[in-house]
Design a binder for these strands. Structure first.
Length: 577
RNA sequence: CGGGGUGUAGCGCAGCUUGGUAGCGCACUCGCUUUGGGAGCGAGGGGCCGCCGGUUCAAAUCCGGUCACCCCGACCA
């Protein structure tokens, strides 16, 4: 360690909030270069490489073949699939000296599809699975949490190419199984949840989330086994009812009730002979959407029960890839038929505004909604009789206690870090490029794709988020930068010489050992050993007088004294589990 | 892009209210002592006080502007 390029920090860096960021910087694994851009120092790089190796082994094991594409890419392929515009400001783009457009690859579906199109032409060539471990670039709106969300990051992305849907399902299953093995080997606690496919397009999709309070993703699960990212949760719709015999809609003067709370209070004080709750109201939220790259916005009305807020993440996922924004004052001014606080379905329909409702708003349900003029609401406005929405949308917030869509019980919510994503992409990209194989009947077969990602550099942080204590990091053996951290606690020839011999002997049997031979006080060495988080700490010191050394388990804190004779075998046994 | 905050030595911070030419801890260098839980003493090196402009005899400090970064909300591995 006296020559290891390492400097630990006694204090937390001021800009680090989450544990992984704090500790990876303090323990000398990474250093920040610019927002969302980090350098990997020797310790960090060793962890990163070990994770890469696990990923490689498991990908190779399912028959995927590793290749390496450039990160610097021309515009054309991304133009062909529309992602040059769809990705919007999230791509790093620039021009070369001749003025041609380039980008730094945010993901590589296009290039893989083109590569396969160029090489393969017969049904006999398929199926094939290819992957790479590559640096990706995304100009994130807000990089955060150290290497958890960077603008440059390392990702394993793989793609499967199959002749039919059954083949795709099989490739998907193999990837999913490989991911389970990878994350198990990495020592992670994680959940697999149903997901939205996002900007990549496609259908069947699941995410692997590392369980962590600091995670950016919220997911839900039920005791009965349902699990999904909140963005992908579907709301169970009650059965439609008959509108026969329901009371007629009535407009009421409801002064000063621009909010749901004020409306409910007013109604309950109005002597209508029943009690109202926020759930009985239909809140209409006005948004504007636009296709990426297009200048003009389109109005969109979303109706949902008044006790629910709009979850912008869910809304955006539902409308993807379109952009969405709430209306501002200027927008309201432009459209006088929108009476803020009193918007009802009627004026939306009359003015041709697309109107989507929460799935709970089914035919035959009665609501209190705006009457499209100030200080007025309509009571007993019945869906399917008094208004007809253009469709449903998953935009309402999901709450703990809501029923799971598959009837498996109430949902609970938790947070996680997205570490992997598998999905059946389908033919979006092969259609764009015309990737066909000639079939046995000499007719072309359109290839179908799967796309599978693992955030390799993010995994380092995700593991750290789950593996630390008050003293520092605590790596799982499978990814630790070293197997054994050997502290030389003393300066006598017996101690120093004994420690060096032990280190050499361990090295000879393949145990990777980090020797702290610095001229520092024992306290400093112990503290650094705990901060760095190698799973086994060996202390060679005063015990050497009796021919004994101390072995400490970083995770449990348990120490044992063992004889130096036979220590190599003992430690090698520990390391190999 | 909206809201909050911060820019002073490699890192963490004080100084600013009340202008007088920069300080503390860690880290670093040298010497002596010390060596099982972040050692002691002594001597050192290192700072366009984010940047531009203004006020003033004098600006880290006051005023205006600007840039950067961090944190909280909308994207994704």
């Amino acid at each position: 360690m006296s020559s290891l390029f390492l400097r630990t920090l006694r204090e937390d860096p001021a800009d680090a909030e989450v544990p992984s960021h704090r500790l990876l910087v303090r323990a000398g694994y990474v250093r920040r270069v610019a927002p969302g851009i980090y350098s990997w120092l020797p310790l960090g790089l060793r962890v990163l490489r070990r994770i890469e190796e696990i990923v490689r082994e498991e990908m190779d094991a399912i028959g995927a073949q590793e290749i390496h594409l450039p990160a610097l890419l021309p515009r054309e392929p991304y133009e062909a699939t529309g992602r040059w515009t769809e990705y919007g400001p999230n791509i790093f783009r620039f021009k070369d000296r001749k003025g041609a457009d380039y980008l730094l690859g945010p993901t590589h579906e296009e290039l893989f599809a083109l590569l396969v199109k160029g090489e393969y032409a017969s049904y006999k060539d398929y199926p094939v699975m290819l992957y790479q471990i590559q640096t990706k670039y995304r100009d994130e709106a807000r990089p955060r949490a150290g290497i958890l969300r960077g603008r440059e990051f390392l990702m394993k992305d793989s793609y499967s190419f199959d002749l039919d849907d059954e083949g795709l399902a099989e490739s998907y299953r193999r990837h999913r199984d490989a991911y389970v093995r990878i994350f198990d080997r990495a020592g992670l606690q994680y959940v697999i949840v149903a997901a939205m496919s996002g900007a990549m397009g496609g259908s069947a999709s699941e995410e692997f989330l590392a369980v962590a309070e600091t995670g950016e993703d919220t997911y839900v699960r039920s005791a009965g086994g349902y699990a999904a990212n909140v963005e992908a949760v579907t709301t169970p719709a009650p059965p439609a009812r008959s509108v026969e015999g329901l009371p007629a809609a009535q407009a009421h003067h409801t002064p000063n009730t621009p909010t749901i709370d004020s409306l409910v209070d007013f109604l309950n004080a109005a002597g209508l002979g029943r009690t109202f709750t926020a759930q009985d109201t239909l809140k209409n939220v006005l948004l504007k959407t636009r296709v990426p790259g297009q200048p003009e916005w389109t109005l969109l009305g979303v109706g949902l029960p008044g006790d629910r807020e709009v979850d912008m993440k869910r809304l955006e996922a539902a409308l993807d890839p379109a952009e969405v924004a709430l209306l501002d004052e200027a927008d309201f001014a432009k459209h006088p038929f929108l009476v803020k606080g009193y918007i009802g379905p009627a004026s939306l329909a009359a003015n041709g505004v697309r109107y989507l409702v929460d799935p709970r708003v089914v035919t035959g349900t009665a609501w209190v909604s705006g009457a499209d003029k100030p200080d007025h609401h309509v009571v007993d406005l019945v869906a399917g009789r008094d208004f007809t929405p253009d469709g449903t949308i998953e935009a309402a917030e999901v709450r703990a206690g809501d029923p799971a869509p598959d009837g498996s019980g109430p949902l609970e919510t938790a947070r996680g870090i997205e570490i992997g994503h598998v999905f059946q992409l389908g033919r979006k990209y092969t259609d764009a490029f015309g990737v066909d194989a000639l079939g046995p009947d000499s007719k072309p077969i359109r290839i179908t794709m799967g796309s599978y990602g693992i955030g390799v550099s993010r995994l380092v942080a995700a593991i750290a988020e789950q593996s630390f204590d008050g003293d520092g990091l605590v790596w799982p053996r499978s990814v630790a930068p070293f197997d054994v951290h050997l502290v030389i606690a003393g300066k006598s020839e017996e101690i120093v010489g004994g420690a060096e011999d032990l280190a050499a002997a361990l090295d000879a049997v393949g145990v990777r050992v980090l020797v702290d031979d610095r001229k520092a006080s024992p306290g400093v060495k112990f503290a650094d050993a705990e901060l760095i988080g190698v799973p086994t700490i060996v202390i060679v010191g005063r015990g050497m007088a009796d021919g004994r050394i101390e072995v400490k388990d970083r995770r449990s804190g348990e120490r044992e004294e063992i004889p130096l004779v036979g220590a190599v075998e003992h430690l090698a046994g520990l390391v190999r589990g």
